[in-house]
Every structure is written in structure tokens, then in C-alpha cells.
């Protein structure tokens, strides 16, 4: 009798732990999702802004067909991208196309004086900054979630219910990683 009772108590405690761990994993997963949606809003906004910018620039830049085609292609790839891995790749390509465009713009002083172009560029810059600031928050959440999945004992629960590790949103930018070596006296 007492053996059965002890057995039941142990089972009860085990179930309690499993449920608690499962719930905390779900909560973390949702936090990751929420952080991602913050980035996603900004990415969408960037996709919406780019055609306007291109449209404005086209009037001034008659001989830059290739640059525009690159941007349009990269943008449509970025919009179509499904999972996070694809998105990171597509956004990287879009970044390259946009930085190429920015280099070309330097040759068109008339365009750089256009009020509409400037305000669109300001919106694009702020969206890119927002992406980079919310990326930090997303990566922190992913690190936390992945740690939980890999560490004992939550890794058992994660394995049982097929929780998968999330991907970091790292943009491969050499410039960002380099530390400038400047000394001031």
C-alpha cells in the first residue's frame, strides 16, 4: 500500500516537472517568435520602401539598368524566402545590391538633392538601423532558448517533444566585426 503511494507520489512529482519544463520551453519558443516578428515587421517595411526609392532614382539614373535589375531580383527573392535560413541569405544579397546602389548614387548630384529621394533614404536608413537593433534582441532570445534545449535535464523534454534549435540572425558583414585600431592620447 505504502509502496504504491510512494510510487504515485514520485510519478506525480515527475509529471509536475515535465509539465513545468515543457511550458517553460514553449514560453521561450514564443519569445523567440515574438522577437523574430519584430525583425520581420522591419524587413517587410524595407521591402515596401525599396520600389519607391528605385522609382524615384530611375528618372535620374538612365544608364544604371543593371543595378536596378539586381535590386529588383534580390528584393523578390527576399520576399519569397520562407524559413529563417533562406531569409538571412536573401537579405544579405539585398544588402549587397543596396550598397552597390548607394555607391552609384554618389555619381548623381541631382538625385542627391531631390527632397523625395532624401526622405525615402532616411526611411530606409532608419529601417535598417531598427533591423540591426532588434537583431540583437532576437539573438539574445535564441541563445537562451538553444541553451535550454542543449542542457540537462531540459534536453530530455526537448528531445521527447521534438523542439529544434533556432537559428541566429547573423549578417555576414566583415566591416562590423573588425575592430578599428585607433589610439588617442
Amino acid at each position: 500500500m505504502s509502496g504504491l503511494l510512494i510510487f504515485l507520489i514520485i510519478v506525480g512529482i515527475l509529471i509536475f516537472f515535465v509539465v513545468g519544463m515543457y511550458n517553460s520551453l514553449i514560453r521561450l519558443k514564443n519569445q523567440v517568435k515574438n522577437a523574430w516578428s519584430q525583425i520581420d515587421v522591419q524587413l517587410k517595411r524595407r521591402h515596401d520602401l525599396i520600389p519607391n526609392l528605385v522609382e524615384t532614382a530611375k528618372g535620374y539614373m538612365k544608364h544604371e539598368r543593371e543595378t536596378f535589375e539586381n535590386i529588383t531580383r534580390a528584393r523578390s527573392h527576399a520576399i519569397k524566402a520562407g524559413n529563417i535560413g533562406e531569409k538571412i541569405k536573401a537579405e544579405g544579397a539585398l544588402n549587397d545590391a543596396m550598397s552597390m546602389f548607394n555607391v552609384v548614387v554618389e555619381n548623381y548630384p541631382d538625385l542627391k538633392a531631390n527632397q523625395n529621394f532624401l526622405s525615402l533614404q532616411e526611411e530606409l536608413t532608419t529601417t535598417e538601423n531598427k533591423i540591426s537593433f532588434s537583431r540583437q534582441g532576437y539573438n539574445d532570445q535564441v541563445l537562451f532558448f538553444n541553451n535550454k534545449i542543449q542542457m540537462f535535464p531540459s534536453n530530455i523534454i526537448a528531445g521527447m517533444f521534438h523542439f529544434k534549435e533556432e537559428e541566429f540572425f547573423e549578417i555576414e558583414d566583415v566591416k562590423e566585426k573588425e575592430v578599428p585600431k585607433v589610439k588617442f592620447s
Binding site: N102, A113, Q121, E122, T125, E128, V179
Partner: peptide, 12 residues
């Protein structure tokens, strides 16, 4: 946290 590149200046 490494130092970031400055963002593009959009003012005229």
C-alpha cells in the same frame, strides 16, 4: 560588443 559602423548620413 564591438563598435558599429556609422549609419549613412541622409541629410543634405
Amino acid at each position: 560588443i564591438p563598435v558599429k559602423e556609422p549609419s549613412k548620413d541622409t541629410s543634405k
